[in-house]
Amino acid sequence: MSESLDLHLALAETELENPVLPYLRQDRIPHIWCPGCGIGTSVNCFCRALTDSGLDLDKVAIVSGIGCTGRTAGYLNLDSFHTTHGRAIPFATGLKLGNPDLNVVVYSGDGDLFAIGGNHFFHAARRNMDILVICVNNFTYGMTGGQVAPTTPVGPTQTTMPLGNFESPFNLPFIADACGATYVSRWTVYHVRQLAKAMKEALNKKGFRFIEVMSPCPTLYSRRNRLGDGVDQVKYYKENSVIKNGADTKDIGLGYQGEIVVGKFVDRERATWLESMNDHFSKVLGDQFKPYGGKPEGV
């Protein structure tokens, strides 16, 4: 054992660099996420997707709300904005409309995006605001200590549902689909290659794009409900996931430890908010209107 350990120490000092490190603010690593938390895995996939996307990273901005996943913005070596609870999407809307050259990604959790921030999600999707929303769904409020979330399935215990949750959860892809998103997929952190590919695909697409990433919260969800550690949850994802690309989103709600339908469900074209505005004003105002886009003038 020790021979192999020595070898790795010797190699690690001099040779290759972990390919994701350039995407991270390395002076902030190790991160705050618990052992076995899947958020880091999703970020890892996102970094690979950034490489594969071929995008100019100076033009990619990341916006997070509050919560465990909300800390993502702070670890990525991009223009990054850690905003207020639930308001990542409207901030991203302002950033995108302020400079349409930016590729704006919202990276946040289920509580942030669908409880306190639910209204903003619906409207940004309805408008087809040109942003990518990545929701790490761990079925609970992690940062505050394991309270019931709008995604918590019926059954498991949460600190504010001490006798088990009796509220029905949201089916996130169904919401995104119904509100008009141009791209909707769901993967778990077991599906790392598919997830990285989906992120890459979504980064290079226009319109309101949504990816749900199922991820374990070992500290406050799995262990409390005797579901084992993070890795046990990921094994459950592995054993119970069914890939159904193009599935009808209304049929893919998640139950407690039941079947998980993953895949790409929606991929369609629709004019973005800004395209619609430019088209409309050009028609109505003719030469009096110069299509809006690019940086603010004089800057």
Partner: peptide
């Protein structure tokens, strides 16, 4: 490098000797 892709802490990654 599947280990590298799974790692939530950016602590491990794999490489082929050929690439190295």
């Amino acid at each position: 490098d599947l280990c590298g892709l799974f790692c939530p802490d950016f602590a491990i990654f794999g490489a082929r000797w050929k690439d190295l």
